[in-house]
Amino acid sequence: MSDSFVIKNLNASIGDREILKDFSLTIPKGEVHAIMGPNGTGKSTLAKVLAGHPDYAVQSGEALLDGQELLGLEPDVIARAGLFLAFQYPSEIPGVTIANFIRAAIVARQAKGAPFDAKAYYAELYAKMDALKMDRTFTARFVNEGFSGGEKKRCEILQLMMLKPKYAVLDETDSGLDIDALRIVSEGVNRMRGPETGFLVITHYQRLLEYIVPDRVHIMWDGRIVHSGGKELALELEAKGYDWVKTELASA
């Protein structure tokens, strides 16, 4: 399928610990899918494996982004192919301003030697910062250095909006956010929703899904998806708790 992100029978491990076990999921472009699940079921591992993190070993499987196999590619090649990962814990890069960082990421996507339109870049950057209610002095701050939890997540969404990937994985973007920041971040994501972009939203709580309403909800347990449904599944899970997953779904 050339218009979807297809993950098929993915097995991955860290050290000698198997984490993803025949994980399969298909996200058609233009849809928002949510993955929920208790801690330790492999949600963040999934995000990192898809992004090509060197600590994880892939045993088998496929991850086809609009038909292109991502597994085995370098992280930067995966990124330029169109997969964006909003980190749960974004790294600090001392001395590198946000403006220069995003700019470097855009230049990395251009043909070598192609001119960079700085004026248009700043116009777009400022517009998107306004949308995320970020002060303009933010551009001159160093990437994630001394940022509050909310600022870090807003910075991730700003990068997402500027880099316009084909598919975006949001790893626990709601963690560390107060209700206002959650609303702003969600608005940013909702603005990007459309036929050109697919989303995989990883979250522990249902709360985020009140703001970013998913097309599909998947419940993950022990390295694979054990149950899928519509947006109402998130509410059901919230009501019944993860014990329900353990006792009923996992054994099914």
Binding site: D76, A79, S91, I93, F101, A104, A105, L163
Partner: peptide, 17 residues
């Protein structure tokens, strides 16, 4: 890894750091 996830090559990430 963070910088490469944004599309920078390893060398570009290093020199940026």
């Amino acid at each position: 890894f963070y910088m490469m996830q944004r599309g920078l090559s390893e060398g570009e990430a290093m020199s940026l750091a």
